[in-house]
């Protein structure tokens, strides 16, 4: 099972991910059509790319009164079946991350579905801030970072 990781230190707010997602969703480049949103916090100079985290116990899924939210067992994605969605916005109120958006043309909620296992936002990220990775790889990466950190300390000590 893979998931999208976001490294806020690498994000440069180019918004390529937003355009890539919008294009995949609707065939145009309107940023409001994107399911990933990059929030830039000017005061602290931090940018937060945000998209659905595909929670293990997804409250949006449990609460949906139209049974329109399902889990794709192959990708692990929590998906909105737009044909079933009634546009009541209960999922938007349930999501504690603000990661569900509204499609004003079709009057349904919409969110990331991991592009069925090939996320367009990750493919077009220019800085490597977004990765589509497995838990094992992500942990391995963390171990390598930790290992380099330890090495750097040991280097200092041996000098």
């Amino acid at each position: 099972m893979r998931f999208i990781t976001m490294d806020v230190k690498k994000c440069v707010v180019c918004r390529n991910c937003e355009y890539a997602c919008a294009f995949r969703q609707s065939g145009n480049f309107r940023r409001e059509d994107s399911n990933i949103r990059v929030e830039y916090h000017n005061d602290v100079k931090i940018c937060l790319p945000q998209t659905c985290l595909h929670c293990e116990d997804a409250w949006c899924l449990e609460i949906c009164p139209a049974a329109a939210i399902v889990k794709d067992e192959d990708t692990g994605a929590i998906e909105i079946v737009s044909e079933r969605c009634i546009g009541c916005k209960m999922c938007m109120l349930a999501c504690p991350f603000g990661n569900i958006h509204f499609d004003k043309i079709n009057m349904v909620s919409r969110k990331c579905n991991l592009c069925k296992g090939d996320p367009n936002c990750v493919a077009h990220c220019i800085s490597g801030a977004l990765q589509y990775t497995t838990v094992q790889d992500s942990c391995l990466n963390n171990r390598e970072i930790f290992h380099r950190f330890i090495e750097s300390i040991l280097d200092i000590n041996t000098e």
């Binding site: 109120l93 991350f97 990661n99």
Partner: peptide, 13 residues
């Protein structure tokens, strides 16, 4: 607007 609902969602926790 719809996006106000997302703000309420984030406030809920």
């Amino acid at each position: 607007e719809s996006e106000l609902v997302a703000t309420l969602g984030m406030l809920r926790p």
